[in-house]
Amino acid sequence: MSLSTWLPEGAVRIRAEASDWRGAVRLSGEALTEAGAAEPAYTDEMIRTIEELGPYIVIAPGFALAHSRPSPAVRRAGLSWITLREAVPFGSAKNDPVDVVVGLAALDHEGHLEMMSELARVISDPELLAALRAAGSEDEARGVLDAVGS
């Protein structure tokens, strides 16, 4: 199944503007909210997680997986996909600056594994990720995902 399936309307922002990492995480949280996966409070929880544990969510060059723990502010498991017009630093020693932020909301530890498996497949494929970074519109990004979705 294409990753696009887990990115309902409202969950994608392409070439968005953020002035710092908080702004970038906020975009991913707003997209989760708009897509119906989380309440606005979850955005603050994601920012707090990074304040407490550091920028460990920047798990690959230029790529951050913004998330917090399952909480009452999560309505269902879901993802958002944000690419930034200009990359912003998160304070990651190896993987700064970040120009792709995926927001993740989960209800528990296991219920979203099929979604995570598809996300892993997409972001572990350098060519695919490059095509998604280069996409100039949401339609173009979804087209890239649908073309590889099994």
Binding site: Y56, H67, R69, P70, L104, A106, H109, M116, L119
Partner: peptide, 19 residues
Amino acid sequence: VCGMGIGTSVLLKMNTEKA
């Protein structure tokens, strides 16, 4: 290991199994 056990550690587990 990750901060919350739902995101980055799950991705790392999947890629570790692949490795």
